[in-house]
């Protein structure tokens, strides 16, 4: 009985805080993405032929953790199969946040573009038992800074 109460409390806390954090994060993501939309990050490996640019490696990474509620949903989902929708939004947020951090770094250097954008993910807990599941997303690319702007 006592265990059940603890479980329900954890589940409610996970749901409440998780939902709140997710909503707030999405608001911030959309706002910052708009602000940084003048600095394109593209996957192309071939920089523009015209103009002289300095090239700098820029990267942004983020580690996200799963809340108790999402974890419970995912465990249930494991029984039946199908889309783990609980984790989809987490991965979406992590990917966008990593790109934004990379762009923020590039913007600080006065870059005009980021080329060769790449994304990598790594599981930090590696599915070990009794550890909090967390995932790292790393975004990296080549920032192109106009030579004139470089000081």
């Amino acid at each position: 009985m006592f265990e059940l109460i603890i479980f329900l409390v954890l589940l409610t806390l996970g749901y409440g805080f998780g939902r709140y954090a997710e909503k707030r994060h999405y608001r911030s993501l959309i706002e910052r993405e708009q602000k940084l939309s003048s600095l394109p990050a593209v996957a192309s490996r071939f920089p523009p032929m015209r103009g002289a640019y300095r090239q700098v490696l820029v990267n942004g990474n983020v580690v996200i953790s799963v809340d108790y509620f999402k974890r419970f949903l995912a465990v249930l989902r494991n029984l039946f199969g199908g889309r783990v929708t609980a984790y989809e939004s987490l991965m979406d947020r992590a990917r966008r946040e990593a790109i934004l951090r990379m762009k923020e770094q590039a913007e600080g250097m006065g870059a005009r573009y980021v080329f060769n954008l790449k994304l990598e993910t790594a599981s930090i807990s590696k599915g070990r038992r009794d550890t909090v599941g967390s995932v790292e997303v790393l975004a990296y690319g080549t920032a192109l800074i106009p030579e004139a702007a470089a000081g």
């Binding site: 749901y15 939902r19 419970f72 949903l73 889309r83 929708t85 609980a86 989809e88 939004s89």
Partner: peptide, 11 residues
């Protein structure tokens, strides 16, 4: 990239 299902409904 995100399926719009209310988490409580899925639960």
């Amino acid at each position: 990239n995100v399926t719009q299902v209310h988490p409580l409904k899925e639960l």
